[in-house]
Nucleic acid binder design. Structure first.
Lengths: 119, 119
DNA sequence: CTGGATCCCCATCGATACTG
DNA sequence: CAGTATCGATGGGGATCCAG
């Protein structure tokens, strides 16, 4: 779609990371411990089953996440980060950090505004 | 919306960066040189006027981008990265880099698949 | 427990036309 | 040149139900 390759790389990278829940799913999986479907659901209180499934499939497709099925009743499926997925770790950490300071900054600005308004 | 603060930070960070065109706009502005509206349009061949305007406004709102109006005829408006916006530079660079290798990886895999299919 | 199948909404984006 | 206004299309995501 984009002719300029410089732009494509961004788009590609972001497509892998973006999606309403992907970064959060990755964040939790990057903690290292494999997580079951319902464990992830608990960690993402507001996600729907459907969305969790869809996003996990996409991450699996990109080989960022590994899906292991234990053939038993009741079913057990564990999701874990792949080695390749680990390469995203520094980026996500940085994003997380930046987001934190950005929130602080916004909060600070808000406080200043409220203060000057009452002058 | 999200109760878990850990998740909010991601969401916040990504909201600032994400949007179909934001990372690309930021990328170009991070080159350092202030750019006029139409210069940006030329750099983003497929973007519409409307989208460019909207995204620039959002970036301005987040104080990542600075808008300078030169009161003259014909109008001249220059957009440039703010110092605060510069703090995103390493993250965007990393994303860009990761995206590049990700594209390569996909391409490689595709080639391998095509090869084994013809066996 | 995991997750497929359906239906539907609405936010986002595109196209087009108009303006100081 | 640098936008704004309007309208319409599209698809990501939510809710719900069903199934191995």
């Amino acid at each position: 779609m984009q002719k300029n390759p410089v732009q494509c790389q961004f788009v590609t990278a972001l497509d892998s990371i973006v999606g309403k829940w992907k970064p959060i799913i990755l964040y939790h999986l990057l903690q290292g411990k494999p997580l079951r479907f319902n464990e992830l659901r608990r960690l993402l209180p507001d996600i729907t089953q459907r969305m969790l499934t869809l996003h996990l499939r996409e991450l699996e497709e990109e080989e960022l996440v590994k899906r292991v099925i234990y053939p038993q009743i009741p079913p057990k499926v564990e999701y874990s980060i792949t080695e390749y997925g680990m390469s995203l770790s520094p980026i996500l950490k940085a994003l997380h950090q930046w987001g934190a300071t950005h929130v602080e900054r916004k909060q600070l600005k808000k406080e200043i505004n409220e203060q000057t308004e009452t002058d």
